[in-house]
Design a protein around this nucleic acid. Sequence first.
DNA 1: GTGGTCTAGACCACG
DNA 2: GTGGTCTAGACCACG
Lengths: 135, 135, 135, 135
Amino acid sequence: MFELDIRSRKPIYEQLMDNIKELIVTGILKPDEKLPSVRTLSQELTVNPNTIQKAYRELEREGYLYSASRKGYFVAPVDQVEQKDKLKELKETLQALLKEAIYFGLTKETLEEWFDEIKEGGETDDSRQRSNEDV
Amino acid sequence: MFELDIRSRKPIYEQLMDNIKELIVTGILKPDEKLPSVRTLSQELTVNPNTIQKAYRELEREGYLYSASRKGYFVAPVDQVEQKDKLKELKETLQALLKEAIYFGLTKETLEEWFDEIKEGGETDDSRQRSNEDV
Amino acid sequence: MFELDIRSRKPIYEQLMDNIKELIVTGILKPDEKLPSVRTLSQELTVNPNTIQKAYRELEREGYLYSASRKGYFVAPVDQVEQKDKLKELKETLQALLKEAIYFGLTKETLEEWFDEIKEGGETDDSRQRSNEDV
Amino acid sequence: MFELDIRSRKPIYEQLMDNIKELIVTGILKPDEKLPSVRTLSQELTVNPNTIQKAYRELEREGYLYSASRKGYFVAPVDQVEQKDKLKELKETLQALLKEAIYFGLTKETLEEWFDEIKEGGETDDSRQRSNEDV
DNA sequence: GTGGTCTAGACCACG
DNA sequence: GTGGTCTAGACCACG
């Protein structure tokens, strides 16, 4: 489920964040769904609890998770206002990357294909087991 | 010309890289054009020479620049093979980002608009077109 | 009546305390008025009885409530001595907060407005005046 | 300079934050002034570096400090927009506290006196080291 | 059982 | 020299 590369230059807590974001963004983790407890995940991944906690907290700060008192961490539902803010945030990053990709030959057609690939991957997934899906 | 934010969490050498990539990618820096020497740029930006050096080296490693022994660093022209490799590299990053953006409400239409914005912004410079047109 | 936010970082028993203080302080709960029993409130709010108990005990300790052995918890009338003590306690906290607010641009005029807003909001309730007028 | 009470229920990192806020808010620490390094302060206060770091980072998140690459932490100057936001944030807390204080007999006159004390304390206090300025 | 705080201390990246 | 990451592990508060 989680892909962590200890050798990577990217800190483990950031890799964890990316992994969890992916699960949320593809709908595998649903709004208000509970995440594994800090301790549990720590044992499963053999990563220090503090590192898990750091990832969870940062995701809370970014609006992906919320923590309910001492009950644990949960996937945050996104309302429209937050959506717009988040999208504006992402625009800049995305545009910088698009500029690069265009320089290296990305065409509008290819971009549209990529977009469709993602849409199809997520949209039609109703198996929820998600082992047989084409994300 | 260069936007460096010393308060940013992003390391200065990475900010430098981003700035130079931007200049290359938008065609302001042309293929085979010489970049300012490490010393010069170091003084202009009041940045440690080691930091400039690191940015140049890293850009060379990524294929944006080439260095001619003692003569300095130059913008690398991109051939078709390199282009495709680079694009494939970027695809993964871009798709992850697109997934997020779609989750936060990005539509195909908006994405196309963003694409066009960039294309129009760069289109007027035709020296840059050379390397892109033969794709 | 009670605003509890399970997602808040503030413990539920503290949120409960704040809510009850607010009701007392605005005169909605009158001196010697009985509070709902721990059990009742626990069911109404679907909150653990221990949590209600803790809030009530803490409010008793702070002088807002008194408990009559097995009969339950009641709003404590405040006599002049207690009032002065309480006010002295609050002074320190208030001054720290005022310092901050002044740093961020709070003027005397704005502060007076805020004071008046509260006074007007509460003034209409005259049962509450009793305990305040003899100051 | 710093008052830390290990026995207090308030976490050390929060006590640290309060102390530093106080120094900033009273003008003892000036905008862009450097704070002691994490390590230095850690040794001076015999508090774990992680705890210092936590306080610094939280103060950064709240807009009191900024961190410059690897140069250390500095007092953040506040612009007008941030000021207004911060003041709005504080309003709610202050009003809740004012309500309580009014309940316990705080009069407008007393409140104004407290306001003036703070203003004067900052304004005319030239006995300090930092001394001859009028914050 | 859950997250939160804190310590002691190692190692790394940046400049 | 500076902050950032990470571990191993203790103890606490809340519910």
